[in-house]
Amino acid sequence: MKLSSLPGGLAVAALSALSFGTSGALVKPLLEAGWSPAAAVTVRALTAGLVLLPLAVVALRGRWAALWLARWRVLGMGVVGVACTQLAYFAAISTIPVSTALLIEFLAPLILVGVAWAVSKRMPRPAVFLGSALAVGGLVLVIGPGAIQAVDPIGLTFAFLAAIGCAAYFFIAARPDRDLPPVALAAFGLIVGGVILGVLGATGLLSFTATFGDLPLFGALAPWWVPVVLLVLVSTAIAYATGITAAGVLGSRLASFVGLLEVVFASLFAWLLLGEQLTPLQLLGGLLILGGIAAVRSERAEALPPEEPPQHDVAIVASGEATAAASAH
């Protein structure tokens, strides 16, 4: 299976969602042990970027000019896709329920659909509307119907900013660039985001605390660095590298819909590792999300000639989606 194929891109996108989905089960013991969210995210991003750095250098093969030419893309990934999105999300959950913030943040696929509609002046096909309805309905069921409630307007604002940042992440990752390898964008984007968060923590603008004792993990006591290592390698390095690769193949819209599987995988890991039980409604929600992804995928298959790679879809709407990315700054 070629990576440039639609099935290959879907498989890599699912792997990215699976990897991102482990973060909640790994971060929760750290937060309960006294780590601040800013400290956990900074260590996660900066260390993962350093882990990917040797792979990025090998992939570049001395073509540093490509990195310089893509400097604004790398900066956008670090500032918007990593730092701003995380900060907005944590600001949101400080005043509104986590489930509500997640529900709003994962409306990013609808933002991309709306921007493409506004710019192209062409109404999306019925399959896109069907996929959007199924995905949002499934998302509500997975997170919990109780997420829909009256909440603090400031928290809602930050949650919507996180959704815009999430949409910008998929847009930046999906922009066609033959010279900059996906692993290089992931590595340098994470490093930029980690440095920014670290500076904000060092200046006192963000709470920055960490503990270094044993903590409960998977039903036993483990050193603090065990969840950190897993968080860095699996939930961040692999997640971002595969996510950026998949977005380049699938385009921002379809990749963002597949990204909704992160919520499903997060629920599964919380059940397997933290003992948080899954309900029949959550299982039904997962099936609805899969149905939404299938609907959007079928629309892409009809819209593109067989000989055209999915990458061309990104070029068609890139100028329009750039507006969404710019609005996230």
Results as ranks from 00 to 15, higher is better:
residue 56 A to N: 05
residue 166 C to K: 10
residue 324 A to I: 13
residue 40 A to M: 12
residue 258 V to C: 01
residue 17 A to N: 06
residue 106 F to C: 02
residue 18 L to E: 09
residue 261 L to Y: 05
residue 179 D to A: 11
residue 4 S to N: 14
residue 145 P to C: 08
residue 12 V to C: 00
residue 258 V to Y: 00
residue 310 P to A: 15
residue 236 T to P: 08
residue 69 L to Q: 15
residue 2 K to V: 11
residue 171 F to C: 04
residue 313 D to I: 08
residue 76 G to D: 12
residue 9 G to S: 01
residue 17 A to D: 05
residue 50 L to W: 12
residue 266 A to R: 00
residue 109 P to C: 09
residue 135 A to N: 06
residue 286 G to S: 08
residue 70 A to Q: 09
residue 6 L to H: 14
residue 171 F to P: 04
residue 321 E to G: 03
residue 323 T to A: 15
residue 64 W to E: 14
residue 131 G to S: 10
residue 262 E to L: 02
residue 266 A to D: 00
residue 207 S to G: 14
residue 111 I to N: 14
residue 195 V to C: 06
residue 126 P to D: 10
residue 180 L to G: 06
residue 320 G to D: 08
residue 76 G to C: 09
residue 106 F to I: 01
residue 194 G to N: 06
residue 116 A to T: 06
residue 194 G to V: 05
residue 117 W to P: 06
residue 277 Q to G: 13
residue 179 D to M: 05
residue 255 A to M: 03
residue 54 P to R: 07
residue 79 V to C: 12
residue 229 V to T: 15
residue 223 P to R: 04
residue 105 E to V: 12
residue 323 T to Y: 15
residue 57 V to N: 09
residue 77 M to E: 13
residue 62 G to P: 13
residue 79 V to K: 09
residue 281 L to G: 09
residue 325 A to Q: 04
residue 233 L to Y: 08
residue 40 A to F: 06
residue 199 V to M: 09
residue 5 S to M: 05
residue 103 L to D: 01
residue 278 L to E: 12
residue 26 L to E: 02
residue 45 A to K: 03
residue 115 V to Y: 12
residue 12 V to S: 01
residue 281 L to M: 11
residue 46 L to Y: 10
residue 104 I to F: 01
residue 239 A to N: 01
residue 198 G to W: 03
residue 308 E to C: 11
residue 213 G to L: 08
residue 99 S to N: 13
residue 9 G to M: 03
residue 258 V to Q: 00
residue 29 P to W: 06
residue 200 L to A: 11
residue 325 A to N: 09
residue 97 P to Y: 02
residue 92 A to V: 09
residue 242 T to R: 00
residue 227 P to E: 05
residue 269 F to Q: 07
